[in-house]
Design a protein around this nucleic acid. Structure first.
Lengths: 337, 337
DNA sequence: CTAATTTCTGGAAGCGCTCCCAGATTTCTC
DNA sequence: GAGAAATCTGGGAGCGCTTCCAGAAATTAG
């Protein structure tokens, strides 16, 4: 630590020369491979310390044909998505797991055509050992590339249009079912759903969970209203639902933002929550604690999602087999139910 | 696009062979360097297409001694920081600017000793062409490394303990001054401050802005109360301030979270905002729009911060000179003043 | 103490690409 | 049309590291 940092970078040859051994021996020492005598090992280690030697990952990557890095690609047209705290947590999870495996993380934001092209290059040039693909939408060209690439690709969230070999997802069906059952358990029977855009797997699955719970309870699922996951869309959907089903006493929203909108619409027409209508969201974002009343919602382990994606990728890269993984959610009870 | 992706990667030699030229010529073509006849250029291009050739960045990096990547390192003990939407925006800005320069982004979260060690390795091994260091705190070992490293390092936010050669920062002093002056302009005269932890430059600068504005207006700055930037700390500080200055009619908080806490404390003791007390925050995070009343605050261009950091780094890497850059803030008027 | 093992060691051939340079080719100039 | 200048071309030497392999040295066995 207290060594001076030499401006010119030492190379393995210099280390070997200083230690009075061949490059091969020096190489074995830094990779702590066998077949090197105690004496030479120590003298090489000393030289390394003295020179402040750090192996060049580029050269090593070239020789070993392993990049020592994985890419996390966020495939979304809108660069604003990054603002979503979701990605912060995802990244934190990924970063942690990648650190365990001593891989570096390349973060790719495929928001523009240029960005997408760069990701494609990255994948095809083997600059990384594997890819984690997230926020991928229907007809995502990147997903196609991922499918065809010999490089391992782990999906975050199951895509709508095909079942990838490796993916990690949140249990959206189970979560929505739990949300609905929670409402039913509290005596609500006229429960409606605000669902998300049906071209996303998330929205579909969550709506399926609602339907399953209703059917299981012997109730008929009511036709839902859909929104684009925004607060405003939630309010609008709620308004429409109130017209269609004036007697409703429970609503399960496909995410917290829309639930927040629903809360606002409900307040607007003078229905009290949770007395008249109970509301449950999905995601457990910060907003869920800020609404009035605070939102009962389904917590999803985003950080775990990131961690498991990275671990799965590391495993696949290491040649281990792995299948899809579905992460459990749980309900967080607050004041809206 | 419709080409098959061959599983075995083509190399430049194969391209050259197929095109019937030497490797040198092929290399010139892909780098579109001069000194290659039209005919050969075309035949090489054809071969590239046919083989689906993509140059290997590792090999190129090794030969050119340029990594083709920059690192964004988030230096903070707590991996939770990533949850802060701040980083999402910062990352988006960085990603955009790096894309312009066709550099890849390595994201390093230096939350653990292991993580910090890895960053150090990364820097010293020249796996990247430059570093953007952010969220660095006092006595950050990474900052020391950054200082000593021959690699260009751009700081995000001026560190407390020294003035780096290259950094980009938000105009914290100016922003806080504007916040305070805004209060004064609305007739408030007994304005107090809730400041942040004094071992951060951000907190210090913002407090300085408050003092400057007060002094300039001929008023005596009152002794502030400090908090750790959390909502709870804001509420606690507000309570203390109310005891010390029962007559206060305005408060400028060092960030939105603490301002939100102050709002809560104020409501707790029955003071109405903005009638009795006007409150202004700093950051303009999402929370500012969710408080009741919505918070007047100082907007800081986080995304620009990221963009400018990356641009500065790209410039320095390219050998251009650059100095520190201070980004302007602006006040967003809402209902709390 | 010799033969058979086992454990080191360093030379050399890559990994895939860039780039200098000398020689070959073409183009220009008078 | 000869000589000078400008423009191509491909050979070859790296970039810094890993790894195979044959031979040297150290151990063990008989």
């Amino acid at each position: 630590m207290a060594e001076e940092l030499p401006h010119r970078h030492a190379t393995l040859d210099e280390v070997a020369a200083l230690a009075g051994v061949s490059r091969s021996v020096a190489s074995r020492v830094i990779n702590n491979a066998p077949h090197v005598s105690r004496a030479k090992r120590e003298s090489v280690e000393k030289a390394i310390r003295k020179l402040g030697y750090v192996p060049d990952p580029k050269a090593r990557a070239l020789a070993t044909r392993q990049a020592g890095a994985a890419a996390l690609v966020i495939s979304r047209d809108d660069p604003e998505v990054l603002t979503d705290p979701f990605f912060g947590q995802l990244i934190a999870g990924v970063a942690g797991a990648l650190e365990e495996a001593d891989l570096h993380m390349m973060l790719c934001v495929a928001a523009t055509p240029r960005g997408r092209e760069r990701v494609e290059q990255l994948v095809r040039s083997r600059a990384v050992d594997g890819v984690m693909l997230t926020a991928s939408h229907e007809d995502d060209p990147l997903a196609r590339i991922a499918k065809e690439s010999p490089l391992p690709v782990v999906f975050g969230g199951r895509p709508v249009d095909f079942e990838p070999r490796w993916y990690v997802d949140i249990d959206n069906v189970g979560g929505a079912r739990e949300a609905t059952e929670h409402l039913l358990a509290r005596g609500r029977t006229r429960v409606v759903a605000i669902c998300g855009p049906q071209d996303t797997e998330v929205a579909r699955s969550r709506h399926r969970g609602y339907r399953e719970a209703m059917t299981l309870a012997g109730l008929t699922p009511r036709p839902p209203e859909a929104g684009d996951f925004s607060e405003a869309a939630g309010a609008a959907a709620m308004t429409r639902l109130l017209e269609a089903h004036p007697d409703l006493d429970g609503v399960v929203a496909a995410n917290d933002n829309m639930a927040a909108g629903a809360l606002r619409a409900l307040r607007g027409v003078g229905r009290s929550v949770p007395e008249d209508v109970a509301v449950v969201g999905f995601d457990d974002l910060a907003v869920a604690q800020l609404t009035d009343p605070a939102l009962t919602t389904i917590h999803q382990p985003i950080r775990d999602l990131g961690r498991e994606m990275a671990r799965m990728l590391v495993g696949v890269v290491a040649g281990r087999t792995a299948g899809p993984l579905i992460l459990p959610t749980h309900l967080v009870q607050r004041s809206s139910t």
